[in-house]
Design a protein around this nucleic acid. Structure first.
Lengths: 231, 231
DNA sequence: AGGGAGTGTAAAGCTTTTGTAAATAGAGGA
DNA sequence: TCCTCTATTTACAAAAGCTTTACACTCCCT
């Protein structure tokens, strides 16, 4: 496993220096910024971060605003650091979208353990970066243009077919139930006798088959569908 | 989105009652057990839990032991509760695989926020992938794809066969009665003269035998079945 | 040894789920 | 409005899986 990338957003330079020194030997690479504006800029710069450590008291934008803005487009886990006097209610003010909170002053080992727990948990997610091109065997899918290439040739899919293929490919090797697919792609619960997903999968297979490619989508009767990858 | 399933393992009946009352209106369904042994049994019963709340001080097995045993086969997020505010305890729990740690007495809103954060984060994952691969000798079972590899080759099982093998492997070395298997796998009481389980086991053995592997499933006449491991 | 209960398993029957063509409904644009 | 493209529903055949039946065999008990 390569080094984990952390982004630390805190205006206390003494603390950031200390933390950085503490975390580096543990296999983390730490980028530091000292205000909310720079924090948002860095987090959305395109560089991938495994975790963001975010102080609540910040110049320019405070931690809550940074959190709110980031959550619009990013799912990177965020651990918030709060000074003692901060309004607990506001921190808990649910729906904010942070993954963990830790009150200053904190035990360094506890911070380290919480970082490790979050990173470990996140590493279970399949390809998290939803925006990247996704290529498996001879099928390449590009989210930015919503296009799919199969063996170099363009595969014409409808919106729903594209979404299903994307979801299956993101979770390749994992079984996805029709319920899951319906909720994530169609945004509704799968009703009894609802055959929509079956139809879309059937159409997808038909289109893929025209490109004389191997069977990609496997059915697990009573359980769901699974995208296959070779070897 | 349907209600989230929580498992609360704590011997303090007053607290569990209180918490249960507090969490239900927020859209959680809470199952409660009061000792470590029952906790493990319930968590591995096959019912899906979105989150497990685990007290450290427990009869039978303490929280750390429960955590260790569960982590062998399950990746369900676990939030640990402790009476002691000891940092070292927290660190230990987190390093052993817990996802969060909260010291008693805690603010109910903080618990609620932490539960919500964990559940929100996990809901990004398909439900199947919260269980770890299970490998015993040359048989490897992968819950996320519901596939089984035997000596590296793919073993094609039906849903029920898979479930029975999963159950047997989870309890390897322990005898499982047909009644238990029927209830956990088929979801019904074993009726008199019901030979379904026998048939499924027979088919399982036949499929395993094609991979010229050793006898894995042993019969205990009048008692049930047992999954064997070498040495 | 005889007999009953429990088990292994082939084969048949039944139920549920899936694949897909075709009909219908709906949305968006010219 | 009508046309076109998509999504959904309907309908039915086919496939796959589950259960039942039947009978042979095995293990124990007397």
């Amino acid at each position: 496993m390569s080094n984990k990338q952390l982004l630390l957003i805190d205006d206390d330079t003494e603390l950031t220096e200390l933390l950085s020194q503490y975390l580096k030997p543990q296999g983390y690479e730490v980028d530091i910024v000292h205000d909310g504006e720079a924090g948002i800029a860095q987090a959305t710069s395109g560089k991938h971060y495994d975790l963001i450590l975010l102080d609540v008291m910040l110049p320019k934008f405070d931690g809550f605003e940074v959190l709110k803005k980031l959550r619009v487009s990013h799912l990177t886990p965020i651990l918030m650091l709060t000074a003692k006097g901060d309004d607990l209610d506001k921190i808990l003010g649910l729906e904010m979208g942070a993954d963990d909170y830790l009150a200053k002053p904190f035990n360094h080992r506890e911070l380290s353990a919480r970082i490790k727990a979050l990173v470990r948990r996140m590493s279970l997610l399949p390809a998290t970066s939803v925006q990247q091109n996704l290529k498996l065997d001879d099928v390449e899918l590009s989210p930015s243009s919503q296009q799919v290439l199969c063996g170099g040739r363009l595969l014409e899919l409808t919106g729903t077919e594209y979404s299903i293929l994307h979801l299956l490919m993101l979770n390749h090797g994992n079984l996805l139930s029709k319920e899951d697919i319906s909720e994530k792609v169609l945004g509704r619960k799968l009703a009894q006798f609802d055959r929509s997903i079956d139809m879309h999968v059937s159409n997808l297979r038909k289109k893929l088959a025209e490109f004389n490619t191997k069977e990609k989508i496997k059915t697990h009767r009573g359980a769901g569908y699974l995208y296959l990858v070779e070897a």
